[in-house]
């Protein structure tokens, strides 16, 4: 009941989705659409999982008085503010949108922009041409970086004006992305996809069961 039924459900839904995609028969297509609608209905409930995990983490922090535990109250203040306004009045409520636009958006954007500083610092401290492979990575990165900005072509057209090729910086960037980068990425895509397919088969057949978690 606790492990066998989920394994059977997984097998049935997996097999149904594989076979219905190959059959244009009306019964098969109705079944296909019905399973999609089931998945659509079930997936929003997964919200409960994510929310309870976050709440439990912060409740534990407060209860155990771990370092900076007081800040966990702010997490609840944020959640409650948004839920109290948004659930009854909807996401198009002006106050709800105000909090999104003037609190969430600037903080989200700023949080990720911090990485620009860290990348610059790391570029100075750690980006070294120690080996042949590291040199390849470094040279490619420098070419792409210069090809990505208009000043790259300006420098090329000024300093290397005697060359027959115009806009060489952006041209070199585009060639790298179109050729060696494409090959490497394609290799990765093929490898990952073979992995996804084999893992999916293992899941459907019940060989891979880690999604069931521990316990009985």
């Amino acid at each position: 009941m606790r492990r066998q039924v989920p394994l059977i459900l997984c097998f049935v839904f997996g097999i149904v989705m594989i076979f219905t995609q190959f059959s244009p028969h009306s019964v098969s297509q109705t079944l296909y659409q019905e399973v999609i609608s089931w998945a659509l209905i079930i997936s929003p409930f997964a919200l409960v999982l994510a929310t309870t995990t976050l709440i439990q983490t912060h409740v534990t922090r407060i209860r155990r008085r771990t370092e900076h535990w007081q800040y966990s109250f702010l997490v609840f203040v944020g959640i409650i503010t948004m839920v109290v306004i948004g659930v009854p009045f909807g996401p198009q409520n002006q106050v709800f949108e105000w909090f999104y636009t003037h609190v969430q958006v600037p903080m989200d954007a700023t949080m990720f922009s911090l990485l620009a500083f860290f990348i610059a610092s790391a570029a100075y401290r750690a980006f070294r041409a120690r080996t042949f492979e590291a040199s390849l990575l470094l040279i490619t990165a420098l070419i792409v970086m210069m090809g990505n900005v208009p000043v790259g072509d300006l420098i090329w057209n000024t300093v290397l004006s005697w060359l027959p090729l115009e806009d060489g910086a952006s041209g070199a960037r585009q060639w790298i992305l179109n050729n060696p980068n494409l090959s490497a990425r394609r290799g990765i895509i093929l490898g990952v996809s073979l992995g996804v397919i084999s893992q999916s088969i293992r899941i459907i057949l019940g060989i891979e069961r880690t999604y069931l978690g521990g316990g009985d």
Binding site: A123, R128, L142
Partner: peptide, 18 residues
């Protein structure tokens, strides 16, 4: 256009570091 200057700086930092 602003990005140009930051990229020049980062390229400079990489070269200086090396």
């Amino acid at each position: 256009n602003i990005e140009s200057f930051v990229h020049l700086l980062i390229v400079g930092l990489v070269v200086a570091g090396n």
